[in-house]
Every structure is written in structure tokens, then in C-alpha cells.
Amino acid sequence: MSLWEYANPVKFLRLSERVLPALWVFAGLCVATGLIWGFFATPDDYRQGSTVKIIFLHVPSALMAINAWFMMLVTSLIWLIRRHHVSALAAKAAAPVGAVMTVIALATGALWGQPMWGTWWAWDPRLTSFLILFLFYLGYIALWEAIEDPDTAADLTSVLCLVGSVFAVLSRYAVHFWNQGLHQGTSVPVATGARTVSDVFFIPLVICMIGFGMLFVALVLYRTGTEIRLRRTRALLARGARGA
């Protein structure tokens, strides 16, 4: 019994069908608990006021935005090396989830930045890296949509994911370099504030992070199932067309 057994689409579907209901419930409970706790039951920060409540959305979604790309990188590698279809389809299924997480992170960040920094957007390294990450997601999704043959699409998007990862990391360092070059001596206080605070904020934040993580896993499993079904439909239709 090894993990590779679940590279078989039928086994994967059977397992995910068994796991998903519990996963949905657990993810929903965690997200709901974390967010309700964070929204209703946390005090205001003495410096940030009530905007501190935004981190319960911002940090988990940012975390998942990066983890989603990392997961796509791993599944792309598995597809390129071992050619398990489930792996390629899981990467395809994860991309829109990651893109939405990136948008949530950017939107909540902008909404927090407006009162705190006095601007919706600053070309701060972190913000800029996330915007670039979003562009990578867009390109990746667009490439999946554009290619007709599913196996070629899986191949090419995997290569794009690998090369894109390298360039995403490069961009991150380039952006750090670039902004230091622009604003010598000034820094935008990203790392300060709520991130190092007491348990009052930390516990609901951890619950939210677990919840977003579980939600991501559930969504990817669910969407991978959809992709497997689409693939099988296509195969059946192709066989039917050949037979007729």
C-alpha cells in the first residue's frame, strides 16, 4: 500500500468521496470559528484599531496563495516524472484556487493599507511580489485553457510552472533590490504591527490558517474530481466517435 495507489483515478475518486464530507465540515468549522472569533471576540489593537481584524483573512490567504503555487510545482514535477494524470489535473484544479487566494490577500492588504499607510497601494516588495505571483497564476490558467489536447496542455503547463517558479523567486529578490534602490532609508512597516502580538490575536489566527489550509485541500480534491470526470467524459466521447 503506497501513496502512488491514489494516482489511479478511480481509487482517487473513491478516497476523495469518502474524505471530502468530513473535510468540508472541518474546514468550514475552522474558518467559521476563526473568522467569527476574530471578528467578534478580539479587542482592538491600540495602534491599528479595529483594522487588526483584517489579518484573520489576510495572513491565511497569503499563506495559501504561496502554498498553492508550491503544491502546483510539486504536482507538475510528479506529472513530468511519473506521468500520473491525477497529479497534472490536481495542479490544474489548484491554480484558480491559488489565484483567488492571491486576490483576497491583495484586496485585504489594500483595505488594511488605506487607513494604516494612507494609501491603497504601495510598491512595497511584498505587495509587488504578490502582484507578480498573480500574473503568473493568470498565465498558467490561460495556458491550460488555450491548449486543446489535455496531455500536451499538462506537459506545457508543467514546464511553465517549473520555469515560472524560478522566475517568481528571481522576481521576489529583484523586487526587494529594486525598492531598496528607490527608497533608501525609508521602509514601509509591513513586518510591524499585529504579526508579533499576544495570544488574543494569535489563537484565532492559527485557527483561520488551519481552516484556510483545509479549505484549500478540500477545494483541490473536489476540483480534481471534476477534472477527472471531464477527462473520462472526453475519453468516452472520443471512443464513441471512433466507433461510429
Partner: peptide, 20 residues
């Protein structure tokens, strides 16, 4: 909860995220 002067930002952050 009393959101004070940042009510708009906090509420819209939650609104936008949940909507997405």
C-alpha cells in the same frame, strides 16, 4: 462589535473575501 472609524475597511475586507 464596535469597529470605530475603520468600520468601512474591516467590513469590506470581510465582505470581499467571503464573496470571493
Amino acid at each position: 462589535p464596535e469597529l470605530g472609524k475603520y468600520a468601512f475597511e474591516v467590513l469590506s475586507a470581510y465582505g470581499v473575501s467571503l464573496l470571493l
